[in-house]
């Protein structure tokens, strides 16, 4: 178990470094000379040379890349062009809000989708299975930003049940919760259907395995078998898909944040794009990547806890 987690952790770190390298190369490939842009068109060649030397722009590409990755990993993401504040501060202030939105969105999707999937798998082809099937396939097709816009129009504008913009007054927990309801609904809704479908298929597969017959042969009730001995196996592939799907979830959260003008990584990145504030943009991209890698590492850990066979196979 220990060595498995260490291997997974090293792998996660490598993935993060690779992502940073790609990001660096993307910046590098953008046409234009930084020195000319920074000093303006009337700067002399000598000034430009001095600037390049001071900023390390005349170093070989590899040295620049390693320096960039090293700085990012140490949390130095540069300075916000507009406010002159460190990008790391901005990003770290926005991060908890996005994580909260993603977790609550995913959380309610699991809380609803998992039982729906289990009920469907236990009564295959029954009317309840069909109803769940129709509902889940229809919500899977809904993009989260669309849900955000319609949710906003219906529940905030027309009905006035929930606030439309912002994240709530700092310190007022109830207000923050009310501001979270609609965005979390929009982020999670497609996942309800997705999780219900995945759990159903995976459960049905495991229910057909031989060991289920053994438990039945000893008179254990079907419900008990399903919940205690089948579900832990059936959620493993669901978890793997969720881990990979975190990328989707995060990009969904980003769009939803923009729709609800909710402070967070999404709004930060969006505003940065609009104002060409590149350090902030890259900072939020790096942190989102790190979030994704972390989520995958946590998924791997959960899977290892559920299925002892995976640990030994590596």
């Amino acid at each position: 178990m220990g060595s498995y987690l260490v291997r997974r952790f090293v792998l996660a770190l490598l993935v993060l470094c690779l992502a940073l390298l790609i990001l660096f190369l993307l910046i590098y490939a953008v046409p234009g000379d930084p020195a000319t842009i920074a000093l303006g068109p009337r700067a002399s060649e000598a000034q430009k040379l001095l600037f390049r030397e001071r900023m390390g722009l005349d170093d070989p590409l590899v040295v620049q890349a390693v320096r960039y990755i090293g700085l990012m990993l140490r949390g130095d993401m540069g300075t916000d062009i507009l406010s002159q504040r460190p990008v790391a501060d901005l990003v770290l202030a926005a991060l908890p809000r996005t994580v909260l939105l993603a977790l609550v969105g995913l959380g309610w999707a699991v809380a609803l989708g998992l039982p729906l999937g289990v009920v469907s798998a236990l009564n295959p082809n029954s009317w309840i299975d069909r109803v769940v099937g129709v509902i889940s396939t229809s919500v899977v097709a809904l993009p989260s930003f669309l849900m955000a816009i319609y949710g906003l129009m219906l529940f905030s504008v027309t009905l006035g049940w929930f606030p439309a913009i912002g994240a709530g007054e700092p310190g007022d927990f109830g207000d923050q919760v009310r501001h979270l309801v609609l965005p979390a609904l929009a982020v999670g809704i497609a996942w309800v259907g997705y999780i219900a479908r995945l759990v159903r298929v995976s459960m049905l597969e495991v229910l057909g395995e031989n060991h289920v017959k053994t438990y039945r042969a000893f008179g254990v009730s079907n419900l008990r078998i399903a919940l205690r001995f089948v579900l832990p196996i059936a959620v493993v592939p669901v978890l793997s898909v969720l881990g990979v799907g975190m990328g989707n979830l995060l990009s969904g959260a980003v769009l939803v944040e923009v729709v609800f003008s909710r402070p967070g990584l999404g709004s930060l990145a969006y505003d940065a794009v609009v104002s060409r504030n590149f350090p902030v943009l890259f900072g939020s991209v790096v942190v989102t990547t790190a979030l994704y890698v972390t989520a995958n590492f946590l998924t791997d850990t959960a899977i290892a806890l559920l299925d002892p066979r995976i640990v030994e196979e590596g």
Partner: peptide, 13 residues
């Protein structure tokens, strides 16, 4: 009952 296939008749996890 003693099951047929010992490789699949016990829960793997």
């Amino acid at each position: 009952t003693i099951a047929q296939d010992p490789f699949t008749s016990l829960n793997p996890v």
